[in-house]
Design a binder for these strands. Structure first.
Lengths: 108, 108
DNA sequence: TCGATATTTCAACAAATATCGAATCAAGGG
DNA sequence: CCCTTGATTCGATATTTGTTGAAATATCGA
């Protein structure tokens, strides 16, 4: 992953509503959620949500597909994994730096 | 880690110069780097760097200690690990979502 | 085709962010 | 005590970001 890509992904997640939206999509799994359902759960205006979803999509963190009148958004787990991988490799000395627990060498 | 903390950390890393600075500090390890050395390597004005380092410090990603006339910055690996952990737990369905490789269940 | 529903796009604006140069502060060396 | 060096703080300014309401687009059912 290029650092420019990582910056876009980090920026996309670095906002209250977008992080919350993405977490809801992760929770929803492959089924995803319609834009309207997200707006309702997040209690923000539909146009605001559109703005945020566009940023998440631009960063490649979510995918969208029209289903009837609704547009269903799903989290892109591969993209998220790539981001975590980038952070681990470039910002953690290549080790899984999650503090307490010791990790087997081949892991992460 | 609270989501507010995660947002601050994500926002701190979501900028070209700050991400580059943090990577240099990771590379430098526990020894760290002086502010001046960072500014020179990043080719930005000292005052700009101060602004960015303040954000990284506010997010808890770097620590600073005065050493003579210089101020030495070091990456906080525990904070970075906590961020990676947060993303893995909350945004990857608790699994290490790093795409290709299959991970043992107890891992990550 | 018409109307209702689901979303996005647009325009306008307030707020936050990034940048720089000048001024300020801290620590040493003469 | 002065002067130099390393770094931060302060203004000023340009850019980006987030929010909203109104208008436009797409789909479906009657």
């Amino acid at each position: 992953m290029r650092s420019e890509t990582a910056i876009r992904a980090l920026g996309a997640l670095a906002q209250e509503h977008r992080l919350a939206a993405f977490r809801l999509l992760v929770e929803a799994g492959p089924t995803g959620l319609a834009a309207g359902a997200l707006a309702e759960r997040l209690a923000i205006a539909p146009s605001s949500l559109s703005f945020h979803l566009a940023q998440l999509a631009n960063a490649g963190l979510v995918a969208q597909v029209r289903q009837g009148r609704s547009i269903i958004y799903t989290a892109d787990f591969a993209a998220m994994g790539a981001l975590v991988g980038y952070l681990t490799e470039n910002c953690c000395e290549g080790a899984s730096c999650s503090s307490a627990v010791a990790m087997p060498a081949a892991c992460c």
